[in-house]
Amino acid sequence: MGDKVDRVDPITKTLHLVYTITNIQHKVRVLDGVKVSYSSWVKLFMLHAKGYDVINHIDGSPAPSETTPEYSSWAKIDAVVLQWIYGTLTDDLLVWVLTDDSTAYEAWKRVKKLFLNNKGPRAATLQHELTNLTLAAMPSIEAYCQHIRDLVDQLAAVDCPVNDTQQILHLVHGLPREYDTIATILNQTLPAWEEAVEQLQSEARRIAAREHITPTPIVASAVNSPQPNTRDRQPSSHRNTQNSRSTNNQPRRDSRRTGRPTNHGPTGPHHPQYSWSNNRAPNDPQHLPYCNTLETAEIKF
């Protein structure tokens, strides 16, 4: 009962709104420096701090004196805001921020210092990433646009703001050749960021729809039909001519009974098929073709 009385504002006699939050991560995303940038985290945190009337705990407003009756209530609310800060940091960041006997504003400044130290090198790194960012390196057109916006916010946090015109130019610079038409339009008109993103998303949907259009059955049949063999398209007279030529290339033999081939064509007397060995006479029946051997046998009878 006493704990509930301590949470009641001594002036308004009502329960403070800060105690209605049971899980801050449902309101503010966890800061990791990659998926959730510092600038995005600050915007979300300050939005809820204003909505729940605790913005004075992180904006540097002086705390009430410890001797005043308001200090006890203020200290409890400040502890809740401190829990918000610690609860929306990753474990890697928490070890750099967590200390004993800290106020919410002191923890807020430590987080800021952690991300905004060395503004010059940090700004140079962010500008280089923004200049070299391309749509091909991102999973979708939405992720590409969001990453550009995050980099612009981080540059603003390190005192290196990017105006609207430069932001549109960076958006157009990373587009591939398929988006040349919309890139030309955006370069000429330089619309507001939200309008430029909407036009780019519309062009992306049009390109995706065009790439998924299936061909008509006639076109598909023409594309998928096998090409006829060149040899099958030759006329029959041409094939007959080739067959006659291949027949004429067969080795010709002399009609004489010697059984020796003629000197014409590739199978002359010096061809290995008709080499004479073992000092046998050319008319030896073992070296004669089958037909000439029969003729020689008839003459002997």
Rank of each mutant, 00 (worst) to 15 (best):
Ala75Phe: 03
Leu116Trp: 08
His57Met: 06
Thr22Leu: 09
Trp84Gly: 00
Ser140Trp: 04
Tyr290Ser: 08
Asn243Glu: 07
Ser65Lys: 12
Ile168Arg: 01
Ile299Gly: 06
Val18Trp: 00
His147Asn: 07
Ala204Asp: 14
Thr103Ser: 15
Pro269Gly: 11
Lys76Glu: 14
Ala49Arg: 01
Glu194Gln: 08
His26Val: 10
Lys27Cys: 07
Thr134Leu: 03
Ser246Asp: 09
Gly33Ile: 05
Leu98Thr: 06
Val34Met: 12
Thr189His: 11
Tyr86Ile: 00
Val36Phe: 03
His287Ser: 08
Ile213Asp: 12
Val30Glu: 08
Gly87His: 07
Ser40Trp: 05
Ala208Arg: 04
Ile77Asp: 01
Thr293Tyr: 04
Ile11Asn: 10
Asp53Cys: 11
Thr14Leu: 13
Glu66Asn: 06
Asp6Val: 13
Asp91Pro: 12
Ile24Tyr: 03
Gly60Leu: 04
Glu211Gly: 03
Asn117Glu: 13
Glu295Tyr: 03
Asp3Asn: 10
Gly51Arg: 10
Arg253Ala: 09
Pro139Met: 04
Gln286Val: 09
Val18Ile: 15
Leu31Phe: 07
Gln166Arg: 11
Thr90Ser: 15
Ser202Glu: 09
Ser102Arg: 06
Thr262Asn: 11
Leu98His: 11
Val97Asn: 02
Pro217Ser: 02
Gln167Ala: 08
Glu142Ile: 02
Leu190Arg: 07
